[in-house]
């Protein structure tokens, strides 16, 4: 059976599990990121983490510890810079993460022999997923899911109304720090699968797609994680059969899903507008792209 054929290879089985988990993880956290209007933080942080990965390579630290710590500090720094009213979140992301990336590039350019390893980091290398990597991404998925589960109400309030949530006792500082930690861990764990350059898409596409399909926060969260997992899983198969890089096939599949959801919600909107007299009701589609 051609469907089962790639499962004969251990590297493919590892990659399949890793891509599914990473897709779900990025889809889950992506909901909060998209709704906060910080879609580019994934793109930025993954570049930042790249700097951390290079540094940990040079000083001979474990990749996960070095890159994770670096990513967490970058996320905290972005939050702190953006909270002072002078600099917007987008600018804070731009400054902190690109300089961190540049630092990594500078180090690499001094020792050219490492370039090949980092090409994998930039574009993703599903063939290189080891059992250790699987344990790491499994643990991160479990921890982040627990965080989102137990802080669900508080995170929802803080995302919807960051100014008012603290009035009702929501510990904004702790939750922001916890979220930065979860995001850094997610990016470090997913980086090898989709690659630094494409990770932003796996964080942004599933939540935006599920937003088109529902008006409820809880459902958006679940659908986004499920969509992320499905695109990760199917993207891996596509990658094998079409012989393209796994990161690219996962992202392109997600984009195709988005286009389908967009067409569906536009059609539904048109039908509703046609049924009722007067101006068309506003839908998520209209609001997202205004």
């Amino acid at each position: 059976m051609p469907i089962l054929e790639p499962l004969d290879y251990a590297f493919f089985r590892n990659g399949l599990v890793a891509a599914t988990l990473a897709g779900a993880l990025c889809g889950l956290l992506g909901v909060y990121i998209v709704l906060r209007g910080m879609s580019y933080i994934g793109h930025g942080l993954s570049h930042s983490v790249f700097g951390g990965a290079v540094v940990s390579y040079f000083i001979d630290w474990n990749f996960y510890i070095g890159a994770g710590l670096w990513g967490f500090l970058s996320a905290v720094l972005i939050n702190a810079t953006a909270r002072g009213r002078r600099i917007g979140a987008d600018a804070a992301i731009g400054i902190i993460t690109t300089s961190s990336f540049a630092f990594g590039v500078a180090l690499i350019s001094r020792g050219r022999s490492f370039t090949r390893n980092f090409e994998a980091a930039l574009f993703g290398n599903i063939l290189g997923v080891t059992v250790t990597d699987l344990w790491v991404i499994g643990a991160v998925t479990a921890a982040v899911t627990a965080f989102v589960f137990f802080a669900y109400k508080q995170l929802l309030f803080l995302t919807f109304d960051p100014d008012v949530a603290p009035v009702y006792g929501v510990p904004a500082g702790w939750l922001d720090t916890g979220f930065a930690l979860a995001l850094a861990a997610t990016i470090v764990a997913s980086m090898q699968i989709v690659g630094v350059t494409l990770i932003a898409a796996t964080i942004v596409i599933p939540p935006v797609t599920s937003r088109l399909l529902t008006d409820s926060f809880g459902r958006m969260l679940v659908w986004s994680a499920v969509l992320g997992a499905i695109t990760g899983f199917m993207g891996m198969y596509l990658s094998y059969h079409l012989n393209v890089a796994s990161g690219a096939s996962i992202v392109l599949l997600g984009a195709a899903g988005f286009v389908a959801a967009y067409a569906y919600s536009s059609l539904r909107r048109r039908r509703m507008a046609g049924g009722a007299a007067g101006p068309a009701p506003r839908t998520a589609t209209a609001d997202l792209f205004d």
């Binding site: 137990f150 109400k153 809880g218």
Partner: peptide
Amino acid sequence: PQLETVDWNFPVTVEEVVLMGRAMKTWPWP
């Protein structure tokens, strides 16, 4: 807060918004 500061496109229903007022009272279940 002023209604103008609210993000009306945020995916929440009326009951989800109202229950935010008790976000800290019934931890830990979602």
